[in-house]
Amino acid sequence: MVGGLLLLVGRRRAREDEQRIVPRGTPDTPAETAVILLLLACAACALAFVVLYALDRLPHQTQLLGAALGVALLLFAAALILIGKRLVVTEELEEPYPEEERLVETHEIERIVEESGSRITRRRLLVMAGGAAAGSLGLAAVTPAVSLGPLLDTDRFYKAPWTRGRRLVDEHGRPYLASDIEKDTFYSAYPEAADPELIGSPVVLVRLDPGDLHLPDGREHYALLGIVAYSKICTHAGCAISLYRKPTFAPVEPRPALVCPCHYSTFDPATGGTVLFGPAGRPLPQLPLLRDARGYLRAAGNFSGPVGPSWGGVREDRARA
């Protein structure tokens, strides 16, 4: 009797299940409880975020805010993952992949286009004229972009604000006396009354024994009493050369050098800024120096070569004012 009733119920259930789209799953009360607790904990953390935000002069506020928000999000995530894994039915569906191609429709589209042009006689010419129009319009559309920068004027890359007689000043604008420059250290200098933030402005000054200098031909007089000046901008990738090494005990230590901290190109100040090590492909541009009657350091002209990273043709020319 009871068995028959159960069978009946079971059959009805089975018939009902056949009509369902999503199959029936068994309840999982512990998981459900866990999800509810996780969501409530998430709400608490999210509210804590609001409270923490409202408080003033809270030490470690960024940390507390981040922890509250992060934990709230993670609790919500945990609840959702639990829902996905334990609370909703995970069916296994099958579906055919879309067909590789639909040739009939493709052919129809081709025909629609082809047949639409029955009144046209000089098709190729028309297409070429259309192409010319579209292409020219496209060109016209991008032309204003040339205003972004003078596209063809690359002359400015040769420019540096050094002219004969310009004084060398420090970062506060105080001019250097030749006697300020001491051995075994380095100085940053800028052109007086020019923008220090130009790539051609910063210069590094060091003083060596005049006897140790072996400057290239034609640059013998660039140095002043052993003081040499080079562009502070690395010829490799444009970083500032703010490293100077000098040996304390010359017999066993490396020779003096200017070094760039980006890729460690190393330049020899004694030989005209030639490359001792690293990826730089050309020496540092050298600034010729002179001393005025009052003892101030002045440029005797512009750099021996273009300043900063190289570009095509960079060797051709000296720096220009």
């Binding site: 001491e182 051995k183 075994d184 250290t185 380095f186 100085y187 090494r245 000098k246 040996p247 304390t248």
Partner: peptide
């Protein structure tokens, strides 16, 4: 004093 390879910064600099 500029130990090893470090530059020497005098009281003037």
């Amino acid at each position: 004093m500029g130990p090893y390879l470090m530059p020497v910064f005098s009281g003037k600099q």
